[in-house]
Protein backbone atom coordinates (compact mmCIF):
# COMPACT_ATOMS: atom_id res chain seq x y z
CA UNK A 1 0.00 0.00 0.00
CA UNK A 2 1.46 3.31 -0.98
CA UNK A 3 1.53 6.07 1.53
CA UNK A 4 0.42 9.51 0.58
CA UNK A 5 3.20 12.05 1.19
CA UNK A 6 2.45 15.03 3.38
CA UNK A 7 1.40 18.05 1.34
CA UNK A 8 3.95 20.15 3.19
CA UNK A 9 6.43 19.47 5.92
CA UNK A 10 4.38 18.67 9.02
CA UNK A 11 4.89 21.16 11.82
CA UNK A 12 6.58 18.45 13.90
CA UNK A 13 9.47 18.31 11.39
CA UNK A 14 10.36 21.95 11.78
CA UNK A 15 9.96 21.89 15.54
CA UNK A 16 13.60 21.28 16.58
CA UNK A 17 14.83 24.29 14.54
CA UNK A 18 12.03 26.43 15.87
CA UNK A 19 12.61 25.28 19.44
CA UNK A 20 16.28 26.30 19.40
CA UNK A 21 15.36 29.71 17.90
CA UNK A 22 12.70 30.23 20.57
CA UNK A 23 15.11 29.17 23.31
CA UNK A 24 17.80 31.58 22.01
CA UNK A 25 15.32 34.45 22.05
CA UNK A 26 14.01 33.48 25.46
CA UNK A 27 17.53 33.28 26.93
CA UNK A 28 18.33 36.80 25.75
CA UNK A 29 15.28 38.18 27.57
CA UNK A 30 16.55 38.91 31.09
CA UNK A 31 13.08 39.64 32.51
CA UNK A 32 11.79 36.29 31.26
CA UNK A 33 14.81 34.51 32.74
CA UNK A 34 14.15 36.22 36.07
CA UNK A 35 10.55 35.02 35.85
CA UNK A 36 11.73 31.48 35.14
CA UNK A 37 14.10 31.60 38.11
CA UNK A 38 11.36 32.88 40.44
CA UNK A 39 8.95 30.15 39.33
CA UNK A 40 11.66 27.45 39.58
CA UNK A 41 12.55 28.67 43.10
CA UNK A 42 8.99 28.36 44.36
CA UNK A 43 8.51 24.97 42.67
CA UNK A 44 11.69 23.65 44.34
CA UNK A 45 10.62 25.09 47.71
CA UNK A 46 7.19 23.43 47.37
CA UNK A 47 8.74 20.08 46.39
CA UNK A 48 11.31 20.14 49.21
CA UNK A 49 8.76 21.07 51.90
CA UNK A 50 8.68 17.58 53.51
CA UNK A 51 12.48 17.36 53.90
CA UNK A 52 13.31 20.91 55.04
CA UNK A 53 14.36 20.75 58.73
CA UNK A 54 11.72 23.15 60.10
CA UNK A 55 8.76 22.72 62.47
CA UNK A 56 5.59 21.28 60.93
CA UNK A 57 3.13 23.82 59.48
CA UNK A 58 0.44 22.97 62.05
CA UNK A 59 2.77 22.50 65.05
CA UNK A 60 1.81 25.02 67.71
CA UNK A 61 4.12 26.44 70.37
CA UNK A 62 2.11 28.31 73.00
CA UNK A 63 5.35 29.68 74.46
CA UNK A 64 6.13 31.48 71.20
CA UNK A 65 2.89 33.20 70.23
CA UNK A 66 3.28 36.11 67.73
CA UNK A 67 7.08 36.19 68.14
CA UNK A 68 8.97 38.56 65.85
CA UNK A 69 11.44 37.07 63.32
CA UNK A 70 14.45 35.49 65.05
CA UNK A 71 17.07 32.81 64.41
CA UNK A 72 14.68 30.11 65.69
CA UNK A 73 11.79 31.45 63.57
CA UNK A 74 13.25 33.46 60.63
CA UNK A 75 9.80 34.77 59.58
CA UNK A 76 8.35 34.89 63.12
CA UNK A 77 5.39 32.96 64.51
CA UNK A 78 1.62 33.38 64.16
CA UNK A 79 -1.25 33.88 66.61
CA UNK A 80 -1.02 30.33 67.99
CA UNK A 81 2.76 29.98 67.84
CA UNK A 82 3.09 28.24 64.47
CA UNK A 83 6.25 28.90 62.43
CA UNK A 84 5.38 31.38 59.63
CA UNK A 85 8.26 30.17 57.39
CA UNK A 86 7.08 26.57 57.63
CA UNK A 87 3.48 27.56 56.82
CA UNK A 88 4.73 29.60 53.88
CA UNK A 89 6.79 26.72 52.48
CA UNK A 90 3.82 24.34 52.78
CA UNK A 91 1.50 27.07 51.55
CA UNK A 92 3.54 27.26 48.33
CA UNK A 93 2.24 23.76 47.55
CA UNK A 94 -1.39 24.88 47.82
CA UNK A 95 -0.81 27.97 45.67
CA UNK A 96 1.17 26.24 42.91
CA UNK A 97 -1.16 23.24 42.93
CA UNK A 98 -4.18 25.54 42.64
CA UNK A 99 -2.55 27.45 39.78
CA UNK A 100 -1.55 24.39 37.78
CA UNK A 101 -4.63 22.22 38.45
CA UNK A 102 -7.18 24.96 37.74
CA UNK A 103 -5.43 25.92 34.50
CA UNK A 104 -5.23 22.20 33.67
CA UNK A 105 -9.01 21.94 34.11
CA UNK A 106 -9.55 25.06 31.99
CA UNK A 107 -7.24 23.79 29.20
CA UNK A 108 -8.69 20.25 29.19
CA UNK A 109 -12.24 21.56 28.78
CA UNK A 110 -11.61 24.80 26.89
CA UNK A 111 -9.15 23.71 24.19
CA UNK A 112 -11.13 20.73 22.79
CA UNK A 113 -14.33 22.82 22.80
CA UNK A 114 -12.56 25.76 21.15
CA UNK A 115 -10.90 23.58 18.50
CA UNK A 116 -14.18 21.82 17.68
CA UNK A 117 -15.98 25.14 17.56
CA UNK A 118 -13.42 26.67 15.18
CA UNK A 119 -13.10 23.49 13.09
CA UNK A 120 -16.77 22.54 12.67
CA UNK A 121 -18.18 26.10 12.59
CA UNK A 122 -21.94 26.28 11.98
CA UNK A 123 -24.25 25.42 14.86
CA UNK A 124 -21.50 23.98 17.05
CA UNK A 125 -19.61 27.24 16.80
CA UNK A 126 -22.70 29.37 17.38
CA UNK A 127 -23.73 27.39 20.48
CA UNK A 128 -20.24 27.23 22.00
CA UNK A 129 -19.68 30.93 21.30
CA UNK A 130 -22.93 31.97 22.99
CA UNK A 131 -22.12 29.88 26.08
CA UNK A 132 -18.59 31.34 26.14
CA UNK A 133 -19.94 34.89 25.95
CA UNK A 134 -22.39 34.18 28.75
CA UNK A 135 -19.60 32.80 30.96
CA UNK A 136 -17.27 35.67 30.08
CA UNK A 137 -20.00 38.10 31.12
CA UNK A 138 -19.56 37.24 34.77
CA UNK A 139 -16.29 38.65 36.15
CA UNK A 140 -13.73 35.88 36.80
CA UNK A 141 -13.56 36.26 40.59
CA UNK A 142 -17.30 36.81 41.11
CA UNK A 143 -17.94 33.63 39.12
CA UNK A 144 -15.31 31.74 41.12
CA UNK A 145 -16.77 33.04 44.41
CA UNK A 146 -20.30 32.06 43.39
CA UNK A 147 -19.17 28.58 42.28
CA UNK A 148 -17.04 28.06 45.40
CA UNK A 149 -19.97 29.20 47.54
CA UNK A 150 -22.34 26.69 45.94
CA UNK A 151 -19.80 23.84 45.85
CA UNK A 152 -18.68 24.44 49.45
CA UNK A 153 -15.42 25.85 50.82
CA UNK A 154 -12.32 23.66 50.19
CA UNK A 155 -9.11 23.84 48.16
CA UNK A 156 -10.41 21.23 45.69
CA UNK A 157 -13.65 23.14 45.11
CA UNK A 158 -11.73 26.41 44.80
CA UNK A 159 -9.56 24.81 42.09
CA UNK A 160 -12.67 23.52 40.27
CA UNK A 161 -14.35 26.93 40.57
CA UNK A 162 -11.27 28.79 39.28
CA UNK A 163 -10.74 26.22 36.51
CA UNK A 164 -14.36 26.43 35.33
CA UNK A 165 -14.24 30.24 35.44
CA UNK A 166 -11.14 30.20 33.21
CA UNK A 167 -12.61 27.79 30.62
CA UNK A 168 -14.07 30.53 28.35
CA UNK A 169 -10.63 32.18 27.97
CA UNK A 170 -9.24 28.97 26.45
CA UNK A 171 -12.33 28.24 24.35
CA UNK A 172 -12.06 31.67 22.77
CA UNK A 173 -8.30 31.42 22.23
CA UNK A 174 -8.37 27.88 20.79
CA UNK A 175 -11.33 28.76 18.54
CA UNK A 176 -9.61 31.85 17.15
CA UNK A 177 -6.31 30.04 16.59
CA UNK A 178 -8.02 27.07 14.94
CA UNK A 179 -9.91 29.37 12.58
CA UNK A 180 -6.65 31.13 11.70
CA UNK A 181 -4.80 27.85 11.06
CA UNK A 182 -7.69 26.53 8.96
CA UNK A 183 -7.08 29.25 6.38
CA UNK A 184 -3.41 28.23 5.89
CA UNK A 185 -2.46 26.67 2.57
CA UNK A 186 -0.98 23.51 4.10
CA UNK A 187 -4.26 22.76 5.90
CA UNK A 188 -6.16 23.32 2.65
CA UNK A 189 -3.78 20.88 0.90
CA UNK A 190 -4.09 18.34 3.68
CA UNK A 191 -7.88 18.51 3.41
CA UNK A 192 -7.67 18.18 -0.36
CA UNK A 193 -5.79 14.87 -0.14
CA UNK A 194 -8.54 13.54 2.11
CA UNK A 195 -6.90 13.45 5.54
CA UNK A 196 -9.37 12.46 8.26
CA UNK A 197 -10.69 15.08 10.67
CA UNK A 198 -8.81 13.52 13.59
CA UNK A 199 -5.53 13.43 11.63
CA UNK A 200 -6.00 17.02 10.50
CA UNK A 201 -6.67 18.23 14.02
CA UNK A 202 -3.88 16.28 15.73
CA UNK A 203 -1.17 16.74 13.06
CA UNK A 204 -1.83 20.25 11.78
CA UNK A 205 -4.11 22.21 14.07
CA UNK A 206 -3.04 21.21 17.58
CA UNK A 207 0.76 21.69 17.07
CA UNK A 208 0.08 25.17 15.71
CA UNK A 209 -2.13 26.31 18.53
CA UNK A 210 0.15 25.04 21.30
CA UNK A 211 2.38 28.19 21.53
CA UNK A 212 -0.45 30.69 22.24
CA UNK A 213 -2.09 28.20 24.62
CA UNK A 214 1.24 27.84 26.44
CA UNK A 215 1.58 31.63 26.79
CA UNK A 216 -2.03 32.06 27.92
CA UNK A 217 -1.69 29.08 30.27
CA UNK A 218 1.37 30.61 31.96
CA UNK A 219 -0.36 33.98 32.38
CA UNK A 220 -3.56 32.31 33.61
CA UNK A 221 -1.59 30.37 36.26
CA UNK A 222 -0.64 33.80 37.65
CA UNK A 223 -4.29 34.87 37.70
CA UNK A 224 -5.35 31.51 39.19
CA UNK A 225 -2.80 31.80 42.02
CA UNK A 226 -4.18 35.25 42.92
CA UNK A 227 -7.73 33.87 42.63
CA UNK A 228 -6.93 30.95 44.95
CA UNK A 229 -5.29 33.33 47.44
CA UNK A 230 -8.35 35.61 47.18
CA UNK A 231 -10.77 32.73 47.78
CA UNK A 232 -8.68 31.46 50.70
CA UNK A 233 -8.49 35.02 52.02
CA UNK A 234 -12.29 35.13 51.96
CA UNK A 235 -12.45 31.70 53.65
CA UNK A 236 -13.65 29.87 50.52
CA UNK A 237 -10.40 28.06 49.66
CA UNK A 238 -7.95 26.05 51.74
CA UNK A 239 -9.48 25.45 55.17
CA UNK A 240 -7.58 25.87 58.48
CA UNK A 241 -5.39 24.52 59.91
CA UNK A 242 -3.94 23.54 56.48
CA UNK A 243 -1.59 26.33 55.35
CA UNK A 244 -2.32 28.63 52.42
CA UNK A 245 -0.92 32.09 51.72
CA UNK A 246 -4.40 33.59 51.29
CA UNK A 247 -5.78 32.18 54.55
CA UNK A 248 -2.58 33.27 56.38
CA UNK A 249 -3.30 36.84 55.22
CA UNK A 250 -6.92 36.54 56.32
CA UNK A 251 -5.77 35.84 59.90
CA UNK A 252 -2.86 38.29 59.72
CA UNK A 253 -5.11 41.27 59.00
CA UNK A 254 -6.45 40.98 62.56
CA UNK A 255 -2.96 41.32 64.07
CA UNK A 256 -1.48 44.11 61.96
CA UNK A 257 -0.31 46.23 64.88
CA UNK A 258 0.96 43.37 67.05
CA UNK A 259 2.49 41.09 64.39
CA UNK A 260 2.97 42.80 60.99
CA UNK A 261 5.33 40.02 59.82
CA UNK A 262 2.35 37.65 59.68
CA UNK A 263 1.00 39.71 56.77
CA UNK A 264 4.27 40.79 55.16
CA UNK A 265 5.80 37.47 54.08
CA UNK A 266 2.83 35.50 52.68
CA UNK A 267 1.75 38.50 50.59
CA UNK A 268 5.31 39.01 49.33
CA UNK A 269 5.41 35.33 48.35
CA UNK A 270 2.15 35.63 46.34
CA UNK A 271 3.50 38.77 44.67
CA UNK A 272 6.82 37.14 43.73
CA UNK A 273 5.39 33.91 42.35
CA UNK A 274 2.70 35.77 40.37
CA UNK A 275 5.33 38.21 39.06
CA UNK A 276 7.42 35.18 38.08
CA UNK A 277 4.60 33.63 36.04
CA UNK A 278 3.75 37.01 34.46
CA UNK A 279 7.38 37.64 33.44
CA UNK A 280 7.65 34.08 32.14
CA UNK A 281 4.40 34.41 30.18
CA UNK A 282 5.45 37.76 28.67
CA UNK A 283 8.85 36.30 27.78
CA UNK A 284 7.31 33.22 26.17
CA UNK A 285 4.97 35.43 24.16
CA UNK A 286 7.88 37.49 22.84
CA UNK A 287 9.98 34.39 22.11
CA UNK A 288 7.15 32.56 20.35
CA UNK A 289 5.94 35.57 18.35
CA UNK A 290 6.57 34.66 14.70
CA UNK A 291 6.38 38.33 13.62
CA UNK A 292 9.75 38.99 15.21
CA UNK A 293 11.62 36.29 13.27
Amino acid sequence: MSTIPDPVAAPSEVLPRRQSRVWRKFRKNKAALLGGILVAFFVIVALLAPIVPIPGPTETDWGAVRKAPSVAHPFGTDEIGRDVLSRMIWGARASLLAGVVSVGIAVCIGVPLGVLSGYLRGWTDASVSRVTEALLAAPFLILAIALAAFLGPSLTNAMIAIGLSAVPIFIRLARGQTMAVMTEDYVESARAIGLTHIALITRYILPNIVPPILVQGTLTIATAIIAEASLSFLGLGQQPPAPSWGSMLNVAKNFLEQAPWMALYPGAAIFLVVLGFNLLGDGLRDALDPRDH
Binding site: A229, S230, K253, L256, P260, A263, P266, I270
Partner: peptide
Protein backbone atom coordinates in the same frame (compact mmCIF):
# COMPACT_ATOMS: atom_id res chain seq x y z
CA UNK B 1 3.93 44.33 35.78
CA UNK B 2 4.28 44.60 39.56
CA UNK B 3 0.90 46.36 39.67
CA UNK B 4 -0.61 43.42 37.79
CA UNK B 5 1.10 40.88 40.05
CA UNK B 6 0.39 42.34 43.47
CA UNK B 7 -2.70 40.86 45.14
CA UNK B 8 -4.81 43.93 45.93
CA UNK B 9 -5.94 42.58 49.30
CA UNK B 10 -2.27 42.37 50.37
CA UNK B 11 -1.55 45.86 49.04
CA UNK B 12 -4.55 47.05 51.07
CA UNK B 13 -3.25 45.40 54.23
CA UNK B 14 0.23 46.88 53.70
CA UNK B 15 -1.19 50.36 53.09
CA UNK B 16 -3.30 50.15 56.26
CA UNK B 17 -0.14 49.14 58.11
CA UNK B 18 1.91 52.03 56.71
CA UNK B 19 -0.55 54.88 56.19
CA UNK B 20 -3.09 54.24 58.94
CA UNK B 21 -1.21 52.37 61.67
Amino acid sequence: LSGLSVPNFWLGIMMILLISV
